[in-house]
Amino acid sequence: TTVHLNGVTYTFPNPEEARKFVEKLAKTLNLKVEVHNGTYHIE
């Protein structure tokens, strides 16, 4: 599972880890999250 954040790409072997990371980040920084083909894009 891949996460794109400010031009940096993070790869998680575990989709659940990626989801938790994204949710925590989005909540902390009040960001918008979009998912395209299983890839998270955070703005």
Results as ranks from 00 to 15, higher is better:
residue 4 H to D: 05
residue 6 N to W: 14
residue 11 T to Y: 11
residue 24 K to I: 13
residue 14 N to C: 15
residue 25 L to I: 09
residue 16 E to Q: 08
residue 26 A to K: 11
residue 36 H to R: 14
residue 14 N to T: 10
residue 26 A to I: 11
residue 42 I to W: 03
residue 12 F to A: 00
residue 29 L to V: 06
residue 42 I to E: 04
residue 36 H to F: 07
residue 21 F to V: 02
residue 43 E to I: 15
residue 32 K to C: 15
residue 6 N to H: 13
residue 5 L to G: 02
residue 40 Y to W: 12
residue 17 E to V: 11
residue 24 K to P: 01
residue 12 F to E: 00
residue 27 K to S: 06
residue 36 H to S: 05
residue 32 K to Q: 05
residue 4 H to F: 12
residue 36 H to E: 05
residue 19 R to Y: 09
residue 6 N to L: 13
residue 14 N to L: 06
residue 10 Y to C: 15
residue 43 E to N: 10
residue 32 K to T: 07
residue 29 L to Q: 08
residue 39 T to A: 14
residue 29 L to W: 03
residue 22 V to Y: 02
residue 16 E to Y: 08
residue 24 K to E: 13
residue 16 E to G: 08
residue 21 F to E: 01
residue 29 L to G: 12
residue 36 H to A: 04
residue 5 L to R: 02
residue 7 G to I: 04
residue 14 N to Y: 06
residue 39 T to V: 15
residue 24 K to H: 13
residue 32 K to H: 10
residue 9 T to Q: 11
residue 16 E to F: 09
residue 38 G to E: 03
residue 1 T to D: 06
residue 24 K to L: 12
residue 3 V to H: 01
residue 41 H to S: 04
residue 8 V to L: 10
residue 13 P to M: 10
residue 21 F to Y: 05
residue 25 L to Q: 01
residue 35 V to Q: 04
residue 24 K to D: 12
residue 41 H to P: 04
residue 17 E to N: 10
residue 41 H to N: 04
residue 35 V to A: 02
residue 40 Y to G: 03
residue 6 N to V: 06
residue 8 V to E: 09
residue 41 H to M: 07
residue 20 K to S: 09
residue 7 G to P: 01
residue 34 E to I: 14
residue 14 N to D: 11
residue 18 A to S: 02
residue 32 K to G: 03
residue 15 P to H: 11
residue 15 P to N: 11
residue 26 A to L: 12
residue 11 T to Q: 11
residue 8 V to M: 09
residue 32 K to V: 09
residue 21 F to K: 00
residue 33 V to A: 02
residue 27 K to P: 04
residue 13 P to N: 09
residue 37 N to W: 03
residue 8 V to Q: 09
residue 9 T to W: 11
residue 29 L to P: 07
residue 36 H to M: 07
residue 34 E to N: 06
residue 41 H to W: 15
residue 15 P to A: 11
residue 19 R to F: 09
residue 23 E to N: 05
residue 34 E to G: 03
residue 22 V to L: 04
residue 25 L to A: 03
residue 38 G to Q: 02
residue 7 G to C: 15
residue 10 Y to D: 00
residue 20 K to T: 08
residue 31 L to W: 04
residue 22 V to F: 02
residue 6 N to I: 09
residue 9 T to H: 09
residue 24 K to Q: 11
residue 1 T to N: 10
residue 4 H to P: 01
residue 31 L to D: 02
residue 38 G to R: 01
residue 22 V to R: 01
residue 7 G to K: 09
residue 39 T to R: 08
residue 43 E to T: 15
residue 22 V to E: 00
residue 14 N to G: 10
residue 33 V to Y: 09
residue 3 V to I: 04
residue 17 E to T: 12
residue 24 K to R: 11
residue 27 K to N: 08
residue 35 V to Y: 14
residue 33 V to M: 04
residue 9 T to M: 12
residue 16 E to N: 09
residue 9 T to N: 07
residue 39 T to K: 07
residue 27 K to Y: 07
residue 42 I to K: 02
residue 25 L to R: 01
residue 38 G to Y: 02
residue 10 Y to N: 02
residue 23 E to T: 06
residue 37 N to R: 02
residue 22 V to Q: 01
residue 18 A to Y: 01
residue 38 G to H: 05
residue 4 H to L: 12
residue 2 T to N: 13
residue 17 E to D: 12
residue 42 I to N: 03
residue 19 R to H: 07
residue 16 E to I: 10
residue 27 K to H: 07
residue 30 N to C: 15
residue 24 K to W: 14
residue 33 V to I: 13
residue 1 T to Q: 06
residue 1 T to S: 10
residue 26 A to Y: 04
residue 15 P to D: 12
residue 32 K to A: 04
residue 41 H to G: 01
residue 39 T to I: 15
residue 12 F to W: 03
residue 1 T to W: 07
residue 41 H to Q: 05
residue 26 A to F: 05
residue 33 V to N: 00
residue 12 F to H: 00
residue 36 H to K: 13
residue 30 N to T: 03
residue 21 F to D: 00
residue 36 H to I: 15
residue 27 K to C: 15
residue 20 K to W: 08
residue 22 V to C: 14
residue 33 V to K: 00
residue 18 A to F: 05
residue 38 G to T: 02
residue 34 E to R: 12
residue 11 T to P: 07
residue 7 G to M: 06
residue 23 E to V: 08
residue 11 T to H: 11
residue 1 T to A: 09
residue 40 Y to M: 11
residue 43 E to D: 06
residue 35 V to F: 14
residue 22 V to K: 00
residue 35 V to T: 03
residue 42 I to L: 14
residue 34 E to K: 09
residue 7 G to N: 11
residue 18 A to L: 04
residue 17 E to M: 13
residue 29 L to E: 08
residue 11 T to M: 11
residue 20 K to A: 10
residue 2 T to V: 12
residue 30 N to I: 06
residue 31 L to V: 14
residue 22 V to G: 01
residue 32 K to P: 03
residue 8 V to A: 10
residue 23 E to K: 05
residue 30 N to D: 09
residue 18 A to D: 00
residue 15 P to W: 08
residue 3 V to R: 00
residue 13 P to Y: 08
residue 12 F to K: 00
residue 11 T to N: 09
residue 14 N to K: 05
residue 29 L to T: 08
residue 30 N to E: 08
residue 25 L to N: 01
residue 14 N to M: 05
residue 14 N to P: 01
residue 2 T to S: 11
residue 37 N to E: 07
residue 14 N to Q: 05
residue 20 K to H: 09
residue 17 E to I: 12
residue 28 T to R: 14
residue 21 F to P: 00
residue 26 A to P: 02
residue 34 E to W: 13
residue 39 T to P: 03
residue 3 V to K: 00
residue 34 E to Q: 09
residue 22 V to A: 14
residue 41 H to F: 15
residue 33 V to G: 01
residue 16 E to T: 09
residue 39 T to F: 08
residue 9 T to D: 06
residue 34 E to F: 14
residue 38 G to N: 05
residue 22 V to M: 03
residue 14 N to R: 05
residue 41 H to C: 15
residue 17 E to K: 11
residue 4 H to E: 06
residue 15 P to S: 10
residue 4 H to R: 11
residue 35 V to N: 04
residue 35 V to W: 13
residue 39 T to D: 14
residue 30 N to M: 04
residue 13 P to K: 10
residue 38 G to M: 02
residue 32 K to S: 06
residue 1 T to M: 09
residue 6 N to D: 09
residue 31 L to T: 05
residue 31 L to M: 08
residue 25 L to H: 02
residue 15 P to T: 07
residue 22 V to S: 02
residue 23 E to A: 07
residue 43 E to M: 14
residue 8 V to F: 12
residue 20 K to Q: 10
residue 19 R to K: 11
residue 30 N to Y: 05
residue 30 N to V: 05
residue 18 A to R: 01
residue 4 H to Q: 07
residue 21 F to G: 00
residue 7 G to F: 07
residue 11 T to G: 06
residue 20 K to P: 00
residue 1 T to Y: 05
residue 26 A to H: 04
residue 43 E to S: 13
residue 19 R to C: 14
residue 39 T to N: 15
residue 43 E to F: 15
residue 15 P to Q: 10
residue 38 G to P: 02
residue 7 G to W: 09
residue 4 H to A: 06
residue 9 T to L: 13
residue 9 T to V: 14
residue 10 Y to G: 02
residue 28 T to N: 13
residue 26 A to C: 15
residue 4 H to I: 14
residue 39 T to G: 12
residue 33 V to Q: 01
residue 8 V to T: 09
residue 19 R to G: 05
residue 40 Y to T: 05
residue 19 R to V: 10
residue 32 K to E: 04
residue 31 L to Q: 03
residue 23 E to D: 08
residue 11 T to C: 15
residue 25 L to D: 00
residue 5 L to P: 00
residue 31 L to H: 04
residue 1 T to V: 08
residue 38 G to F: 02
residue 17 E to Y: 11
residue 37 N to M: 03
residue 1 T to F: 05
residue 10 Y to K: 05
residue 42 I to G: 03
residue 15 P to R: 08
residue 38 G to S: 02
residue 15 P to K: 09
residue 28 T to I: 14
residue 18 A to C: 14
residue 8 V to S: 08
residue 34 E to S: 13
residue 19 R to D: 05
residue 31 L to G: 05
residue 8 V to D: 08
residue 28 T to A: 12
residue 17 E to S: 13
residue 29 L to M: 10
residue 37 N to Q: 04
residue 22 V to I: 11
residue 5 L to E: 02
residue 30 N to P: 06
residue 14 N to I: 05
residue 42 I to T: 04
residue 36 H to P: 00
residue 6 N to G: 09
residue 11 T to V: 12
residue 28 T to F: 14
residue 5 L to A: 04
residue 43 E to A: 08
residue 3 V to S: 00
residue 37 N to T: 02
residue 21 F to T: 01
residue 27 K to M: 08
residue 4 H to C: 15
residue 8 V to W: 13
residue 36 H to D: 04
residue 34 E to V: 14
residue 13 P to R: 09
residue 35 V to I: 13
residue 41 H to Y: 15
residue 29 L to S: 07
residue 31 L to K: 03
residue 29 L to F: 06
residue 29 L to D: 06
residue 32 K to R: 08
residue 23 E to W: 07
residue 9 T to P: 12
residue 5 L to S: 02
residue 43 E to L: 14
residue 38 G to I: 02
residue 25 L to S: 01
residue 16 E to H: 10
residue 42 I to D: 04
residue 24 K to C: 15
residue 2 T to I: 13
residue 27 K to D: 06
residue 13 P to S: 10
residue 6 N to M: 13
residue 39 T to W: 11
residue 29 L to K: 08
residue 38 G to L: 02
residue 32 K to M: 06
residue 8 V to N: 09
residue 19 R to S: 06
residue 2 T to R: 14
residue 15 P to M: 10
residue 23 E to P: 00
residue 27 K to R: 08
residue 12 F to N: 00
residue 28 T to G: 07
residue 31 L to Y: 06
residue 42 I to P: 04
residue 36 H to N: 04
residue 25 L to V: 06
residue 28 T to P: 01
residue 24 K to V: 13
residue 28 T to C: 15
residue 2 T to M: 13
residue 16 E to A: 09
residue 18 A to H: 01
residue 38 G to D: 05
residue 8 V to K: 11
residue 20 K to C: 15
residue 3 V to G: 00
residue 24 K to G: 06
residue 10 Y to P: 00
residue 2 T to F: 12
residue 36 H to T: 05
residue 33 V to D: 01
residue 8 V to R: 12
residue 38 G to W: 02
residue 28 T to S: 12
residue 1 T to I: 06
residue 15 P to G: 10
residue 25 L to K: 01
residue 18 A to P: 00
residue 16 E to V: 10
residue 41 H to T: 07
residue 19 R to T: 06
residue 14 N to W: 04
residue 20 K to R: 10
residue 12 F to L: 03
residue 13 P to F: 10
residue 20 K to F: 08
residue 23 E to Q: 07
residue 24 K to M: 13
residue 40 Y to I: 14
residue 15 P to F: 12
